[in-house]
Design a protein around this nucleic acid. Structure first.
Lengths: 343, 343
DNA sequence: TCGAAATATGCACGCGTGTTCACATAACTG
DNA sequence: CAGTTATGTGAACACGCGTGCATATTTCGA
C-alpha cells in the first residue's frame, strides 16, 4: 500500500506536477475563480467577452474541470463498474465489447474488472472505494456477498446473465432452460436418441438452468443423458470434454453449454476422431458467438441475444439512475434456435 | 449534459441517498472524525481499542473511505484510461483482456474506451476530465492531437503497438517490418513466387511497416507483390479481400496483415474456391491469436508477443509513475515466426 | 432624473478526505 | 516529586469545484 511509505520517501520521490486548476486559470486570465467555474457552466451569468477570455486562457493552459472534485458536490460521477469473469469464454468478450461501446455512447465510463478469477472479490472491494454510479456484473462471476456491500454504499447493482431474487436489484437474463429445451427438441425430432451433454462450471446458476433444460426435456421423451461431462466454457475445455465423453460412450448428439466448448468438441470429433458431423454426431452449442457462423464450423446453436441484453442493461441503468428507489426489475430475454449445419 | 437540467427538475428528481461518510461513522461510534480517518490509515496514532470500535462501526454502516475525495489531497487515483479502437480485431480483444487483468493485479483500475470508432476522440476528451494516473492507447486508434492535451494535464501517455517520436511518451511496439520479412522469406524458401498481400487500414503506422516489410523483402528477391488488397482487419474483411484478390490473379501465397483476415482468407479459399492450403496456396497471418492454433486453421503466422507487450506496458507505467520526469522510452518487441500448416 | 428591475461578479461555504498542529494525558526518568 | 518523553486526540486546514448569497454595476421604464 502507498500509505505504508514513510513520509520522507514520499517527499523524496519526484512529485508529478499537479493538474492545472481553476484558480490557475483565474489568476492568468485576471478574473475571479468563480468566473472560471461559471465559464464552464451552461446557463450561468457571465459576460460573454469574459467567458470567451476565460475559455481561451483555459485552452492555452490545458485546463479542464476536475470531474472528481465536481462530483464531491453530489453530481453523478458517470463512472460505472463492470465486472466480468475470466475472459476465456468468447461470449464474455463480445458482451464486454458491446457493453463498453454502449456505455461510452451514453456518456458513462466503465471501470473494468476481470480477466482472472483469482482476487476478483478483492478487486471489487477496492473499486467500491470509488463513488460509482452503478455496478454491472456479468453472470456468476461474483458471489452475492457484494450485494450487501453495494446496498450499504448505495451503489445500484445490475446483473447480466443471472437472476437474483432481491427486492432492489435489476437483472437481465436469458431463458436458459427454454433454450435448451429447443435444442434437445430439435435433436429428438431428427431422430437422435443417445444425447450427451457437456456442461460448464456447475456452480453457475445459468449452468444449472441449462443442464435442467436438457435433462427435463430428455425425461419428457423418456430418456436420460447418454453421457454428461463438466468443463470450463473454453475451446480447449470442450475438446477435453469431448475426448472424455467419446472414450466412455458413443452418443449420436452432444449438447454443449456454450459455443466455445461446442467448437472445441466439434473440432475434436472431426479432426481427431474422424467423425462426420452431423451424420455420425450432431453438436449444438449455446450463445451464437461470431465464430459459430464461420464456414469451418457452421454451428447449430441457441442464440443468447447479445444486443438485446446490452440494450436492456443500459435501459435498466438509466431507469435506476433516474429513480434510485424503484423496485428491482427482472428482464428475461428469449433465446432463439439457430439452425445451421451441425444438427 | 446534466448541467442543462434546470435546478427545479434536479430537486424534483429523487436524489440517491448519499454515501456513508466518515463523519457519520464518527457520530455513531462516538469519536471524532479524525479518529475515523486514522483508523483507516496504517501507521497513524490511535488507541487500539478505539480503532477496533471504529472499524466495527464502519463495517456495520458499510462505510469505506471515498477514494475520490482522498485523491484530492494529491494521492494517485489509481485510475488508468485505456483506449482501444473497434474491437473487431480479435487481437485487440486479447490485448484488452490481458491488459485489464494485469492492471487489476497491480491495483490499477482501467477506464475502458472503445468498441466503436465514431466519437472516440470525443470520449477521450470527456475522460480527461478525470484525474487519471495515465492513459494507455492501443495502436492507431487515436490521433496525435491528444498528446498535447495529455501533456498539459500532466497525464502520461503510453502507446502500445505504435511508435511515437515524442520526447516524453512511452511506447511498446512490435518490429512489424522484421516480422513480415521472416514471413516472406519462409514463402520464398519454399519456392513461392506469386505472393499476394492483404493489408489493413493504410493509415495505421503498423500497417505501413508491415506492407513495407513485404514489399522490400520481395524486391530483394527481384519480385513485386502479385496482388495487393486493402481491408479492415476483420474475418469477413479477409474473406472479401481474398475474393477480390483471386478474381484478378492466381497467387501461390498470400500474406495477411493480421490473423483475423488470414482466417477469413483461408476460409474463403478452402470453402468457396475449393483450393487446397497450402498445396495450391499458402497463407500466412500476423499476431498469432488463439484461434490460429485451432486444428481447423492451423495457421502459420508471425507472433506479435502479447504477454511480453502487456508486461512492458505495465513496466513502463510503473516506471513512469515512479519518475514522471524521466525521458520517454521506446520498447521494441521481437516477432516470432510460428510455422504451422498453411505455408 | 430617480427608482426598480436586470445583469454581472466576488466572497464564502460545503462536499469527504488525509494530515499538521497544538494540546492533553499517561508513562517513564532521575 | 518535578521534568522529560512517549502516546493519543480533536480542531483546523487544504484539496478543486459548484453554487447560494449579497453586493456592485448596468439597463430600462416612467
Amino acid at each position: 500500500m502507498a500509505h505504508d511509505r514513510p513520509l520522507a520517501d514520499r517527499a523524496a520521490q519526484p512529485r508529478r506536477r499537479p493538474r492545472v486548476t481553476a484558480a490557475d486559470v483565474a489568476k492568468t486570465a485576471g478574473v475571479s475563480r468563480s468566473a472560471v467555474s461559471r465559464a464552464f457552466t451552461p446557463g450561468a451569468y457571465l459576460d460573454e467577452d469574459k467567458r470567451q477570455r476565460v475559455l481561451k486562457t483555459a485552452m492555452d493552459l490545458g485546463y479542464r474541470p476536475n470531474a472528481l472534485a465536481a462530483s464531491l458536490q453530489g453530481a453523478a460521477t458517470d463512472l460505472v463498474g463492470v465486472v466480468v469473469g475470466g475472459l476465456s469464454n468468447p461470449y464474455d468478450s463480445e458482451w464486454l465489447a458491446a457493453l463498453v461501446s454502449a456505455l461510452n455512447a451514453s456518456g458513462k465510463w466503465p471501470i473494468v474488472l476481470g480477466g482472472q478469477a483469482e482476487g476478483l472479490d478483492e478487486s471489487v472491494t477496492s473499486i467500491l472505494s470509488y463513488p460509482l454510479d452503478a455496478l454491472i456484473v456479468r453472470g456468476g462471476s461474483l458471489g452475492e456477498a457484494l450485494i450487501d456491500n453495494c446496498t450499504k454504499l448505495n451503489i445500484p447493482v445490475i446483473f447480466s446473465g443471472r437472476v437474483i431474487s432481491h427486492p432492489a436489484i435489476d437483472c437481465v437474463a436469458c431463458r436458459n432452460h427454454m433454450g435448451m429445451v429447443q435444442a434437445v427438441t430439435l435433436l429428438l425430432e431428427s431422430g437422435r436418441r443417445r444425447i450427451g451433454y457437456i456442461g460448464g462450471p456447475p456452480t453457475l446458476s445459468s449452468e444449472k438452468e441449462r443442464l435442467a433444460g436438457v435433462v427435463e426435456r430428455l425425461a419428457e421423451a423418456g430418456l436420460m443423458p447418454a453421457a454428461q461431462v463438466t468443463s470450463d466454457y473454453s475451446f480447449d475445455g470442450g475438446k477435453s470434454a469431448m475426448r472424455a465423453l467419446l472414450r466412455d460412450t458413443s452418443p449420436d448428439a452432444v449438447v454443449c453449454a456454450n459455443d466455445a466448448m461446442a467448437l472445441g468438441a466439434l473440432s475434436f470429433a472431426r479432426n481427431t476422431c474422424n467423425l462426420t458431423v452431423p451424420d455420425d454426431l450432431a453438436i449444438i452449442g449455446f450463445d451464437d458467438i461470431a465464430m459459430a457462423d464461420w464456414a469451418e464450423f457452421d454451428l447449430t446453436t441457441v442464440r443468447n441475444p447479445l444486443e438485446e441484453t446490452v440494450n436492456e442493461v443500459l435501459r435498466l441503468l438509466e431507469d435506476r439512475l433516474a429513480n434510485p428507489q424503484k423496485p428491482g426489475e427482472v428482464v428475461m430475454v428469449e433465446p432463439v434456435l439457430v439452425k445451421r449445419g451441425t444438427h
